[in-house]
Design a protein around this nucleic acid. Structure first.
Lengths: 186, 186
DNA sequence: CGACTGGTTCACGATCGCGTGAACCTCTCT
DNA sequence: AGAGAGGTTCACGCGATCGTGAACCAGTCG
């Protein structure tokens, strides 16, 4: 199981130039987002950018985290797509620099919401189709009843999920400021 | 990403003797629980038992789902541990038979709750430790502030999760009867 | 305008988790 | 008690996934 085989925090930082306490954090974040089917390295990159609080270029990320060039490129690209990292270029500078957005969990929540929504929808679709097939084949009455109960439950979950996601977004939004730095905010 | 590479529902039932509409359901359930880091086969076994509504022995499960002997043994064992499947033996019968518990999502919820709880706790622990280390090394004031904000957020999430799990358990409990069969209930 | 630094892409290799199926064990019925 | 069916365990193989690093591309500065 991917999400539960956590890295022991003390073993982190073996590679890269991160301070032990920093890789402790990078690993903790990695554990969290890995559970939601994101990649561990995404968490590490975001954590680094957030902790430093100032724009870092790809070379710095690569050195600090001990990642490969390509890995950094992919990681920042995806983090950008999710809106949790922003790319800036100071005038007179040839390299891009990356900053962490502080609304990390809000953005991640949105991505998860889309995925879960698609998953639940597909389940409802399949169950509906299965029910139709069961009717065609005129299966046993009791069995048909169970299929219908299942589909109804799936529809209920679908609705409950949508409702919860709205609430959850608000809750996370309320804590948005918790990650805003008081000074030198990017 | 494991949870999101769903099996196309129509491709199911290639193996095993399940009716197409049944494997459609088995696959749908598999998609759902796979997202929560359970195995696909667990969902298939439970779905089969639930749909049939009567005790099946290991040989039947094996034939219907096209699984191996060992696979069935492991699947039912774990389903039993989670409390979503019960094992019975009719008198004068040499083989065990298995029945689906209808409080499937309640039980799964409990397991997930334990796992997520452990995950969140370990994160809080790591962040606390990281903060202590950061103080020792007397890191930059602003950076320390960000670590503290992170830890506080983690603690908030930990509490929010516990609260939500109580609510969620109630919500799922309310829908518990949705899967209870009206007749021939095990 | 050419050279070079920085960024992107992609095929390969390492790693990991899962199911298989054979070997082994247990329990029932004769 | 013996035979045999049913159940469990576990080492192996397969498939999927992720990161690497080399080759390629773009944009910048001299």
């Amino acid at each position: 199981m991917k999400g539960y085989t956590r890295h022991r925090a003390e073993d982190a930082a073996a590679i890269g130039t991160l301070a032990p306490w920093e890789s402790l954090i990078a690993d903790a974040i990695g554990n969290v987002i890995e559970f939601w089917n994101f990649k561990r390295s995404h968490g590490a990159v975001w954590a680094l950018l957030y902790l430093r609080g100032r724009p870092l270029d790809a070379a710095a990320i690569q050195a600090e985290l001990g990642m490969s060039k390509g890995g950094v490129s992919m990681a920042v690209r995806e983090l950008e797509q999710w809106g949790v990292v922003r790319r800036t270029r100071s005038p007179g500078d040839s390299a891009w620099h990356y900053v962490a957005e502080t609304d990390f969990f809000g953005m991640i929540g949105k991505v998860v919401a889309e995925r879960e929504g698609a998953l639940v929808d597909s389940v409802v679709r399949d169950l509906t189709r299965a029910e139709a097939l069961a009717v065609e084949r005129s299966v046993d009455e009791a069995e048909l009843e169970r299929v219908q109960r299942m589909r109804r439950l799936a529809e209920f979950v679908s609705m409950a999920l949508r409702t919860f996601l709205k609430t959850a977004n608000l809750d996370i939004g309320a804590t948005k400021d918790a990650l805003d730095a008081p000074d030198e905010g990017g």
